[in-house]
Amino acid sequence: MAKKFRRSKGQGKGSNHEPVIRLQDLSKVYDGGPVAVEALKNINLEIYEGGYVAIMGPSGSGKSTLMHIIGCLDVPTYGSYFLKGQEISRYDSDQLARVRNREVGFVFQQYNLLPRLTAAQNVELPLQYAGVSVNRREEVVEKMLEMVGLAERSHHRPNELSGGESQRVAIARALANDPAILLADEPTGNLDTKTEEEIMGLLDELNEQGRTVIVVTHDDSVALHAKRTINLLDGRIV
C-alpha cells in the first residue's frame, strides 16, 4: 500500500542540500492594537525534503503563527521565506493561492471541513480550484479517501463523521493535489488518545512515503513521532 501512494514528483532537484523550506530572519509583528506585538523574532530555519518536524512550545510562543506563514495563510512582516528555492515572501495573493493549492497541504485542529459538503466534495475542493477535470477529480477523491480509510464514508457530511474521521477527511483534502509538504496545526488537539495514535500513524506513513511533514503541537507524545523537534518560546527558536 505504501508504494501505491508514494509521491510521484521527483525527490527534489537531485540534491538534498537545498532545503525545501528556508526561513531567513523572519519576523511577524501584529500592529493592530495599541501596542505592536512581535509574534516571531528573527526566525532562521531550514527544513529538508522528507523531513518530519514537530514545532513545540507553550501557547503564545508563536508556533501557530510560524505554521501559518509556512502554509502561506499569513505573510511575514520582515525577512524571507524560500519554498523550494523560490522566495514566497514576495509573492502576490494569486501566487500564494497557487502555493496553498499545490505545494502545501494544511490540516487544522478544528478540521475546517465545509459543513454543507460531503466528505468527497470537501476532498474535491482543492482539485476544483486547481482546474482538474471532473473525471480525474473523481478518481483522485476516491484514491484519497481510500488512503485515509474512509472510502465508504464519502457521501457523509461532516456532522455525520466522528472527530477522527473528520480529521482523516481533512488530511485527504490536504493531500488531494499531491503537495510536497503537509502542515498539521495541532491535528490531534480535539481527539482522544486512541484516535490520536491513528492520525499520527497516518502522518508517519505519509512521511515514510517521502512527504515533508510538519506538525505543530504542545503534546510530547505527538512530538515523539517526529524526527526533529523545534522549540519556540516567545517568538524565538530555542
Binding site: 495573493s93 494569486d94 493561492a97 496553498r100 494544511f106 471541513l113 475542493l125 482543492p126 480550484y129 486547481a130
Partner: peptide, 15 residues
C-alpha cells in the same frame, strides 16, 4: 470561515 477555508485550499481572490 467558509471563505477562509476555501482560500486555505487554494481559492484565489477572483475565485
Amino acid at each position: 470561515r467558509e471563505i477562509g477555508i476555501r482560500k486555505a485550499v487554494g481559492a484565489r481572490d477572483r475565485d
